[in-house]
């Protein structure tokens, strides 16, 4: 089963892009499944069902969605195998710019949009820096020059990635992405595979439920602002 991780800031166009690419893949009669990770709620599963792919939703609630992702990906892959999928795609919103769901050797895609501002590629962290493919959306509403500057910034942040421009509404460019998806590595399990980058240690006193403000309550992995 081909496995692909798709991540990106909220509303960057992940669902739109995945759906448009799947429409091309369906011509090859591939059995495709999507796992959608989000924090509180999502309507994406409705959209995926509409195009006839199998979909499961995981809501992380009060934990970092990426940590939640990591603790569940193994089971998700098992589910995909039991459903006899040809391709399993995970969609997760990078809410915390520090974490990223990308796994070594597993095709990693990051979706960013032209409207998010030219400093965004710098800010996103490993989710963008360590992706194999960076998809840039919403080029239809900004100027040519801004598209060029934004793409340049993405290249600065992740010089290794292929960049694909996709219009999430018309699907322009999604065919190119579908070709890349078909090249993704196949695995029967992700057990013992490694993340591309560690997720931050969540071990301060607030992680364990403390709610009081003040130095004396703070223990563990702490960093202080320089004022």
């Amino acid at each position: 089963m081909k496995i692909i991780t798709v991540s990106g800031p909220p509303s960057s166009g992940k669902t739109s892009v995945i759906i448009k690419a799947i429409e091309y893949l369906k011509k090859d009669n591939l059995e495709i499944g999507v796992i959608k990770f989000d924090s509180l709620s999502t309507y994406d599963d409705v959209l995926y069902k509409k195009i006839g792919v199998k979909v499961k939703v995981g809501l992380s609630g009060n934990i970092c969605p990426d940590h939640y992702y990591m603790t569940n990906i193994e089971d998700c892959v098992k589910w995909g195998m039991s459903e006899n999928l040809d391709m399993l795609i995970s969609e997760s919103a990078g809410l915390c710019n520090r974490c990223s769901p990308h796994i070594r050797d597993v095709l990693a895609i990051c979706v960013v949009d032209n409207l998010s501002g030219i400093n965004t590629p710098k800010k996103i962290g490993p989710m963008l820096r360590l992706a194999d493919i960076v998809v840039i959306t919403k080029g239809d509403i900004v100027s040519q020059a801004e598209r060029e500057v934004f793409a340049f910034r993405v290249k600065q942040s992740n010089p290794r990635a292929s960049i694909i421009f996709i219009n999430g509404i018309t699907g322009q460019g999604a065919y190119d992405l579908s070709l890349h998806l078909k090249e993704a590595n196949e695995y029967e399990s992700v057990t013992d595979k490694k993340l591309r980058f560690s997720m931050p240690a969540a071990v301060c006193s607030y992680c364990t439920g403390d709610i009081r403000i003040g130095d004396k309550y703070q223990t563990g992995n702490i960093r202080k602002i320089k004022l």
Binding site: N114, L115, G139, D140, V142, I164, D176
Partner: peptide, 21 residues
């Protein structure tokens, strides 16, 4: 050539495009 960004061959201008910076 189709995929690589260094060779972006086509520039586009349309009524919907605005400056957002």
């Amino acid at each position: 050539k189709r995929f690589s960004m260094e060779n972006k061959l086509v520039a586009q201008l349309s009524q919907n495009m605005n400056f957002v910076m």
